[in-house]
């Protein structure tokens, strides 16, 4: 993130863009470690049915709230379900909530920002006022209010989180588009008679890609955190449980079974941290001119 002075010299003319990005990303050690971490978690999530030693709802009457042991390496919960299994399944939920919510958020943010920035004028005015309205609501109130009102499903939770977190990106994309609109090559393309949509897609969007991708990465972490906060207030996803829900379920027995609370919290923390580091690495790698 801070190497901008060093990195500008770092561009090699004979390299494809992607190769360059990868080469530069690799220099950010924490980002690489984070990427490996996330890939591991993702693999575990995908292989959940194979990896988990038990069913995620399978109880064990003889092991109620028992600590980590050979049989249950991360202990069991209040009604004797295997914590390791639940966390493995929880990875599925938490990761997919993060990814889908980020996708929703980035799609909406980019669409609104791009439309406003490209057309400018009254359209810009309307869209930006709308963005400001949404942005003004305290996120937590808005999330809580809506989640309380819609039917609770994995998809709705994803949607709500995504739909409340797109405003920052929209403003950024709009800014990019506004400045790109006046830039030489868009002018040139226009002069050559290119159609509106082609100009947008080819030039502006590609040129805004770097900040969008960085934002998307960070957004995944933010969404995972948001879902866990909702779960904490009892509004999260219950079956199969998300990490936040598992964490919350152990809250009242912390004195007797702290592992129910500690492990999912560590996972959320680690995963969000990893996404943030990846985002940081991407920021450095994607655009040598991108200023911090």
């Amino acid at each position: 993130m801070a190497q901008q002075t060093a990195t500008i010299k770092d561009i090699k003319a004979d390299e494809t863009y992607l190769k360059m990005v990868w080469r530069r990303f690799k220099k950010h050690k924490l980002a690489v470690i984070s990427l490996l971490f996330i890939l591991t978690i993702a693999l575990i999530a995908i292989l959940a049915p194979i990896i988990s030693p038990y069913g995620y709802d399978q109880t064990n009457r003889d092991n109620i709230m028992s600590g980590p042991s050979r049989e249950h390496i991360l202990g069991t919960d209040r009604i004797g379900r295997d914590m390791f299994t639940r966390l493995v399944w929880g990875a599925r939920i938490s990761l997919s909530v993060g990814l889908v919510a980020a996708l929703v958020s980035v799609t909406v943010g980019t669409l609104i920002g791009a439309t406003a920035g490209y057309f400018g004028g009254i359209i810009d005015d309307i869209l930006m006022r709308f963005t400001e309205m949404v942005m003004s609501f305290p996120v937590i109130f808005l999330l809580l209010t809506i989640v309380t009102l819609v039917e609770r499903s994995v998809f709705n939770v994803m949607l709500v989180i995504g739909l409340t977190s797109w405003t920052g990106l929209a403003r950024m994309v709009r800014g990019q588009f506004l400045s790109l609109r006046e830039s030489d090559y868009v002018e040139a393309a226009r002069a050559l008679g290119a159609k509106n949509s082609r100009i947008v897609i080819k030039h502006m969007l590609l040129n805004s890609m770097a900040p969008i991708i960085v934002n998307a990465t960070l957004q995944v972490g933010t969404a995972i955190l948001a879902e866990s906060s909702l779960s904490f207030l009892g509004l999260g996803i219950t079956s199969p449980p998300s990490w936040g829900t598992i964490l919350n379920s152990g809250r009242f027995y912390m004195r007797y079974a702290p592992w129910i609370t500690i492990f999912p919290g560590l996972l959320i923390f680690g995963t969000v941290l990893a996404f943030n580091y990846i985002g940081d690495g991407l920021r450095d790698a994607l655009d040598p001119y991108l200023k911090r």
Binding site: L247, M254, T261, G265, F269, V272, L273
Partner: peptide
Amino acid sequence: AFFGRALPQFWFALMLIYFIGL
């Protein structure tokens, strides 16, 4: 600073309750 941003607030609070408050 990175840690601070990634730390789930409520979890941090619960940990403080568990390791200090109790």
